[in-house]
């Protein structure tokens, strides 16, 4: 044993943290001011997760523009740019599906379970409509993910977003079920809150996907 390890004296005197040991001094704490209160940990967890997910989309969209920049024609290989009209309408539907979520979140904060369930259901239908349109669009595009790098990127980006929509729809059902069974209340509705955050992200990131894949190919 060296000098360093032989003197095991603790500056705090007794062994704190051990049950029954006399603590230094008991401190009575005041709760934080109402104005200083932050969000619950699960909310922050979702925020960080969204940051990393957004980076994933950012990487894919950067790849899209990288491949686009090194090719002379775009879309590649004489593919016609995807139609703008129908997707514009469904972009509105998807972005609009955030509104009932805002409404539902405000309702559950006041303990209104019925409004929460209605809001979730309306938003779910709008999200589902968007997804169904996406699948139908795939069938009418005339190119596949194997056609060329443009096709690969188009399907990868819309596919990743579509997967997020599907996951969101499934989570929405779970929240709906929890609400139906009365597990959510004005005080306890973290699942609804965290789902809302996720859904707003799924909607928000679509703006970038839409602008990159649809709008920008129609600019001349």
């Amino acid at each position: 044993m060296t000098a360093a390890t032989s003197s095991a004296a603790v500056t705090t005197g007794a062994e704190p943290g051990v049950p029954g040991a006399p603590p230094g001094a008991g401190v009575r704490l005041q709760p934080a001011q109402r104005s200083a209160l932050g969000h619950p940990t699960a909310w922050w967890g979702m925020v960080i997760l969204i940051l990393t997910e957004a980076t994933l989309f950012g990487g894919l969209l950067s790849s899209y523009f990288f491949i686009r920049a090194i090719n002379h024609t775009w879309p590649l290989g004489g593919i016609r740019a995807p139609d703008l009209h129908r997707i514009s309408i469904f972009t509105g539907v998807l972005l609009g599906s955030s509104i009932p979520i805002f409404w539902a979140e405000a309702a559950i904060k006041r303990g209104n379970l019925r409004r929460l369930r209605v809001g979730l259901a309306v938003s779910w239908l709008m999200g589902a409509a968007f997804f169904v349109n996406q699948v139908l669009e795939y069938r009418s595009l005339g190119f596949g993910p194997r056609t060329n790098a443009y096709g690969s990127l188009f399907y990868a980006i819309t596919g990743l977003h579509g997967a997020h929509v599907v996951i969101g729809l499934l989570i929405s059902l779970v929240v709906q079920l929890k609400a139906g069974l009365g597990r959510l209340s004005a005080e306890r509705h973290l699942t609804a809150q965290v789902f809302g955050l996720y859904w707003h992200f799924v909607d928000g990131v679509w703006v970038f996907v839409f602008a990159s894949l649809y709008l920008s190919t129609h600019l001349h």
Partner: peptide, 21 residues
């Protein structure tokens, strides 16, 4: 542990926010 010779410890309060301390 260097600056507080008697390390202070929290006591549980009555409020929801402080009971776990």
């Amino acid at each position: 542990l260097w600056d507080q010779p008697e390390l202070a410890y929290a006591e549980s309060g009555e409020e929801e926010a402080t009971r776990a301390y």
